[in-house]
Measured scan of single mutants.
Amino acid sequence: EEERTFTNEEEARKAKKEAEKRGLRVTVTKDGTTWRVRIG
């Protein structure tokens, strides 16, 4: 499991799409101005 943080919503969405392409489970949460993308 890996967690990545982004300040840019577009980049967070891109990371989510890429992980889904690899067949991984992805959770995206917004924490104030930060987007957290949890993969795995």
Rank of each mutant, 00 (worst) to 15 (best):
K16G: 14
E10I: 11
K30Y: 15
T7Y: 11
E2W: 15
E18S: 05
V37W: 01
E1W: 15
E11H: 05
T27P: 00
T27W: 09
V28S: 01
F6E: 00
T5S: 08
E3H: 05
R36A: 05
K17F: 14
K21M: 14
K16R: 08
A15T: 05
E9M: 06
K30R: 11
R36G: 02
A12G: 01
E3S: 07
N8D: 09
N8T: 14
D31T: 09
T7G: 07
R13K: 11
A12H: 01
E3Y: 10
E18G: 03
R36S: 06
E9I: 09
G23N: 04
G23W: 02
D31V: 12
D31W: 06
E20W: 04
A19H: 05
V37D: 02
I39Q: 03
N8Q: 05
I39M: 06
E10F: 10
E2K: 08
T5W: 14
R25M: 10
I39A: 03
T7R: 07
E11V: 03
W35Y: 06
R22P: 02
K16I: 15
G40E: 15
K21T: 10
V28Y: 03
E11G: 05
E10P: 05
T5A: 06
R22G: 05
A19C: 11
E11M: 06
A15F: 15
T33R: 06
T34W: 09
E20F: 04
R22L: 12
A15N: 03
R25P: 08
D31P: 00
E11Q: 07
F6D: 00
E18P: 00
E18L: 07
G40W: 15
G23P: 00
R13N: 14
A19S: 04
R13L: 15
K16Q: 15
K14I: 11
G23D: 02
K14H: 11
R13Y: 15
K16Y: 12
A15I: 06
I39T: 05
E10T: 09
N8Y: 04
E11D: 13
K14Q: 12
T34P: 01
R4M: 14
T29C: 09
A15M: 08
A19E: 03
K16M: 15
R13S: 10
E2I: 14
R38V: 15
T27M: 07
E20L: 07
